[in-house]
Amino acid sequence: MIEIKNISKSYKEVKALDNISLNIEEGRLFGLIGPDGAGKTTLFRILTTLLIPNRGTATLMNLDTVTDYKKIRRQIGYMPGRFSLYTDLSVQENLEFFAKVFNTTIESNFEMIRDIYVLLEPFKKRKARDLSGGMKQKLALCCALIHKPKILFLDEPTFGVDPVSRKEFWDNLKKLQKTDNITTVVSTPYMDEAALCNEVALIQKGKILAVDTPGNISKRFTHKLFEIKTNNNYKALLLLRKMDGINSAFMFGNSIHLTLNNSKKVTQLSTELTANSFKFSIKNIEPNIEDTFMELMQKE
């Protein structure tokens, strides 16, 4: 459905994208996971035909993003990272406007947006600028879907959104994928959202670190991972970072995630923590996507 070959894009000296290649199959919910400045938005702009790459090519449904841009634009939906709607128009007026631009009506593809629209309906006369963050996001999604696109691009739709609204948004995406078989490319800085995708690409500083299913990505972690809980994690972390034989040590919620160099044994670590009068527990755990992302980042 989407084929990206050796795409590079620079702004002056800054390499936003550095020789990126990716294939995304039809009907997938594909996640582009990476922090601010990784190149996610640049890639979205190239794929949505708004930006021309310096090198490489990209095709959507076998249409080239540079030469066939007019055909592509009719068949994709794009929800940019920053709020993209007309803030001085009402909810209803925004929907009508986007429908007209794409030469369609709200009614003709209503089935697709019904579930989300129902939540918006009580506010349909309200100006877009007066909506809450979660509602703005729902309206933006409706507007991106109004012409029944084959591919949907969502650039950080959950940025700065609280955990409850984030979960609702992802439930909507899952449903769309199931009932309408839309191919969706979504970017996010939240690592926990990667688990909700069929396939993810981890992206950092313009390079793809890894592409795989969320389940398989964590298998790329190369060390044995330990979880340590102590009575004072901050002090323990300072001590661990000074110790010999520690490969990495990071805070993870109410615990520390740690890997050891080959020479170091867990029993040695226990002895050292005890000697410094910490109360603690250590256990071996499976790495998650954030652990993996951080390890891959450090190798770069």
């Binding site: 990476g34 922090p35 601010d36 990784a38 950080e156 940025f159 700065g160 800085p189 690592m191 950092q204 990071f250 954030e290 992302f293 951080m294 980042m297 450090q298």
Partner: peptide, 8 residues
């Protein structure tokens, strides 16, 4: 820290 990478 919104949008900042996990190490930073």
């Amino acid at each position: 820290t919104s949008g900042v990478d996990p190490i930073t």
